[in-house]
Protein backbone atom coordinates (compact mmCIF):
# COMPACT_ATOMS: atom_id res chain seq x y z
CA UNK A 1 0.00 0.00 0.00
CA UNK A 2 1.68 3.20 -1.10
CA UNK A 3 1.16 6.78 -0.05
CA UNK A 4 -0.92 7.84 -3.04
CA UNK A 5 -3.53 5.18 -2.36
CA UNK A 6 -3.70 6.03 1.34
CA UNK A 7 -4.03 9.75 0.66
CA UNK A 8 -6.60 9.22 -2.06
CA UNK A 9 -8.66 7.00 0.23
CA UNK A 10 -8.60 9.66 2.94
CA UNK A 11 -9.49 12.52 0.58
CA UNK A 12 -12.21 10.51 -1.14
CA UNK A 13 -13.70 9.52 2.21
CA UNK A 14 -13.76 13.14 3.40
CA UNK A 15 -15.25 14.38 0.13
CA UNK A 16 -17.91 11.69 -0.09
CA UNK A 17 -18.89 11.86 3.57
CA UNK A 18 -19.26 15.63 3.53
CA UNK A 19 -21.18 15.44 0.24
CA UNK A 20 -23.66 13.10 1.94
CA UNK A 21 -23.75 15.63 4.76
CA UNK A 22 -24.75 18.39 2.33
CA UNK A 23 -27.66 16.36 1.03
CA UNK A 24 -28.78 14.88 4.34
CA UNK A 25 -28.57 17.80 6.75
CA UNK A 26 -31.75 19.73 7.44
CA UNK A 27 -30.11 22.94 8.63
CA UNK A 28 -29.00 25.32 5.88
CA UNK A 29 -25.89 26.40 7.75
CA UNK A 30 -24.78 22.81 8.28
CA UNK A 31 -25.33 22.03 4.61
CA UNK A 32 -23.18 25.04 3.66
CA UNK A 33 -20.40 23.96 6.00
CA UNK A 34 -20.44 20.38 4.70
CA UNK A 35 -20.21 21.79 1.17
CA UNK A 36 -17.11 23.60 2.35
CA UNK A 37 -15.44 20.33 3.33
CA UNK A 38 -16.47 18.77 0.00
CA UNK A 39 -14.72 21.58 -1.86
CA UNK A 40 -11.61 21.25 0.30
CA UNK A 41 -11.55 17.52 -0.41
CA UNK A 42 -11.77 18.14 -4.16
CA UNK A 43 -8.92 20.66 -3.88
CA UNK A 44 -6.93 17.97 -2.08
CA UNK A 45 -7.53 15.57 -4.99
CA UNK A 46 -6.20 18.24 -7.38
CA UNK A 47 -3.04 18.56 -5.28
CA UNK A 48 -2.68 14.79 -5.23
CA UNK A 49 -2.87 14.69 -9.03
CA UNK A 50 -0.08 17.28 -9.28
CA UNK A 51 -2.37 20.10 -10.47
CA UNK A 52 -1.08 22.45 -7.80
CA UNK A 53 -2.31 25.59 -9.51
CA UNK A 54 -5.83 24.25 -9.93
CA UNK A 55 -5.87 23.12 -6.31
CA UNK A 56 -4.67 26.48 -5.00
CA UNK A 57 -7.12 28.34 -7.25
CA UNK A 58 -9.97 26.13 -6.04
CA UNK A 59 -9.02 26.89 -2.43
CA UNK A 60 -8.72 30.65 -2.99
CA UNK A 61 -11.73 31.18 -5.24
CA UNK A 62 -14.30 28.67 -4.01
CA UNK A 63 -13.33 27.85 -0.46
CA UNK A 64 -11.75 31.14 0.60
CA UNK A 65 -14.00 33.48 -1.38
CA UNK A 66 -17.35 32.15 -2.52
CA UNK A 67 -18.01 29.86 0.41
CA UNK A 68 -17.14 32.51 3.00
CA UNK A 69 -19.75 34.79 1.45
CA UNK A 70 -22.25 31.93 1.27
CA UNK A 71 -21.76 30.83 4.86
CA UNK A 72 -21.85 34.49 5.87
CA UNK A 73 -25.15 35.05 4.03
CA UNK A 74 -26.70 31.83 5.27
CA UNK A 75 -25.83 32.66 8.88
CA UNK A 76 -27.51 36.07 8.68
CA UNK A 77 -30.62 34.82 6.89
CA UNK A 78 -30.88 31.67 8.97
CA UNK A 79 -34.30 32.67 10.27
CA UNK A 80 -37.92 31.83 9.65
CA UNK A 81 -39.07 29.49 6.91
CA UNK A 82 -35.64 28.83 5.40
CA UNK A 83 -33.89 27.72 8.57
CA UNK A 84 -34.93 24.09 8.24
CA UNK A 85 -35.16 22.36 4.90
CA UNK A 86 -37.77 19.69 4.36
CA UNK A 87 -37.29 17.74 1.18
CA UNK A 88 -40.47 16.59 -0.53
CA UNK A 89 -40.69 13.00 -1.87
CA UNK A 90 -40.87 14.32 -5.45
CA UNK A 91 -37.64 16.23 -4.92
CA UNK A 92 -35.98 13.12 -3.51
CA UNK A 93 -37.09 11.19 -6.62
CA UNK A 94 -35.89 13.80 -9.12
CA UNK A 95 -32.61 14.30 -7.28
CA UNK A 96 -32.06 10.57 -6.97
CA UNK A 97 -32.64 9.96 -10.68
CA UNK A 98 -30.28 12.81 -11.64
CA UNK A 99 -27.59 11.65 -9.22
CA UNK A 100 -27.92 8.05 -10.43
CA UNK A 101 -27.64 9.16 -14.07
CA UNK A 102 -24.55 11.23 -13.34
CA UNK A 103 -22.98 8.33 -11.44
CA UNK A 104 -23.56 5.94 -14.36
CA UNK A 105 -22.10 8.49 -16.77
CA UNK A 106 -18.99 9.10 -14.65
CA UNK A 107 -18.49 5.39 -13.97
CA UNK A 108 -18.68 4.58 -17.70
CA UNK A 109 -16.30 7.39 -18.55
CA UNK A 110 -13.74 6.39 -15.94
CA UNK A 111 -13.92 2.68 -16.89
CA UNK A 112 -13.22 3.58 -20.52
CA UNK A 113 -10.41 5.94 -19.55
CA UNK A 114 -7.14 5.40 -21.38
CA UNK A 115 -4.10 6.31 -19.32
CA UNK A 116 -1.81 8.98 -20.73
CA UNK A 117 1.16 6.80 -19.81
CA UNK A 118 2.53 9.11 -17.13
CA UNK A 119 3.72 7.66 -13.88
CA UNK A 120 3.98 9.33 -10.49
CA UNK A 121 7.76 9.49 -11.00
CA UNK A 122 7.48 11.92 -13.93
CA UNK A 123 8.34 15.52 -13.06
CA UNK A 124 5.25 17.51 -12.18
CA UNK A 125 4.13 20.10 -14.71
CA UNK A 126 4.66 23.61 -13.39
CA UNK A 127 2.50 26.66 -13.79
CA UNK A 128 4.61 28.15 -16.59
CA UNK A 129 2.92 26.04 -19.35
CA UNK A 130 -0.44 27.40 -18.16
CA UNK A 131 0.80 30.98 -18.36
CA UNK A 132 2.49 30.47 -21.74
CA UNK A 133 -0.53 28.91 -23.40
CA UNK A 134 -2.72 31.55 -21.77
CA UNK A 135 -0.74 34.28 -23.49
CA UNK A 136 -0.62 32.34 -26.77
CA UNK A 137 3.13 31.69 -26.73
CA UNK A 138 2.66 27.96 -26.99
CA UNK A 139 -0.23 26.03 -28.47
CA UNK A 140 0.13 27.51 -31.97
CA UNK A 141 -0.42 31.14 -31.03
CA UNK A 142 -3.96 30.51 -29.80
CA UNK A 143 -4.37 33.12 -27.05
CA UNK A 144 -6.94 32.88 -24.30
CA UNK A 145 -6.35 36.40 -23.08
CA UNK A 146 -9.25 38.09 -24.87
CA UNK A 147 -11.99 35.66 -23.71
CA UNK A 148 -10.60 35.91 -20.20
CA UNK A 149 -10.70 39.71 -20.28
CA UNK A 150 -14.24 39.66 -21.68
CA UNK A 151 -15.40 37.39 -18.87
CA UNK A 152 -13.69 39.49 -16.19
CA UNK A 153 -15.16 42.75 -17.53
CA UNK A 154 -18.54 41.03 -17.57
CA UNK A 155 -18.09 40.12 -13.92
CA UNK A 156 -17.13 43.70 -13.14
CA UNK A 157 -20.29 44.96 -14.85
CA UNK A 158 -22.37 42.56 -12.76
CA UNK A 159 -20.68 43.77 -9.57
CA UNK A 160 -21.21 47.43 -10.40
CA UNK A 161 -24.84 46.74 -11.27
CA UNK A 162 -25.38 44.89 -7.99
CA UNK A 163 -23.86 47.76 -6.04
CA UNK A 164 -26.02 50.23 -7.97
CA UNK A 165 -29.19 48.27 -7.28
CA UNK A 166 -28.37 48.10 -3.59
CA UNK A 167 -27.81 51.85 -3.48
CA UNK A 168 -30.90 52.74 -5.51
CA UNK A 169 -33.11 50.90 -3.06
CA UNK A 170 -31.76 52.94 -0.19
CA UNK A 171 -32.31 56.19 -2.09
CA UNK A 172 -36.00 55.45 -2.48
CA UNK A 173 -36.25 54.92 1.27
CA UNK A 174 -34.31 58.08 1.85
CA UNK A 175 -36.80 60.17 -0.11
CA UNK A 176 -39.67 58.53 1.70
CA UNK A 177 -38.48 58.53 5.28
CA UNK A 178 -34.83 59.55 5.46
CA UNK A 179 -35.51 63.24 6.01
CA UNK A 180 -37.79 62.68 8.96
CA UNK A 181 -35.58 60.20 10.74
CA UNK A 182 -32.42 62.13 10.12
CA UNK A 183 -30.36 58.95 10.35
CA UNK A 184 -28.74 59.61 7.01
CA UNK A 185 -25.05 60.41 7.12
CA UNK A 186 -25.22 63.64 5.11
CA UNK A 187 -28.18 64.88 7.13
CA UNK A 188 -26.38 64.27 10.37
CA UNK A 189 -23.33 66.08 9.12
CA UNK A 190 -25.32 69.10 8.10
CA UNK A 191 -27.03 69.19 11.44
CA UNK A 192 -23.71 69.08 13.17
CA UNK A 193 -22.44 71.86 10.99
CA UNK A 194 -19.66 69.74 9.51
CA UNK A 195 -18.96 70.52 5.90
CA UNK A 196 -18.44 67.34 3.93
Amino acid sequence: MNLTVVLFAMLAAVTAASAVGVAASRSVVRAAVWLLFTLIGVAGVYFLLGAEFLGAAQLIVYVGGTMVLMVFGVMITNQGPFAVLRTKPVEWAVGGVLAGGLFVLLATASLNFVSSGKTPDDPLPGISPIGLSFLGVEDGGKSYLLPFEVVSVHLLVVLVAAAYLARAKRRVNQVASGKEQGTNKEDTRQEQGVTP
Partner: peptide, 11 residues
Amino acid sequence: LVVFALGSLAV
Protein backbone atom coordinates in the same frame (compact mmCIF):
# COMPACT_ATOMS: atom_id res chain seq x y z
CA LEU B 1 -0.68 31.03 -3.79
CA VAL B 2 -0.83 28.09 -1.40
CA VAL B 3 0.06 30.32 1.54
CA PHE B 4 -2.73 32.73 0.63
CA ALA B 5 -5.19 29.91 -0.01
CA LEU B 6 -4.53 28.47 3.44
CA GLY B 7 -4.58 31.93 4.98
CA SER B 8 -8.04 32.51 3.56
CA LEU B 9 -9.20 29.24 5.11
CA ALA B 10 -8.23 30.43 8.57
CA VAL B 11 -11.45 32.42 8.77
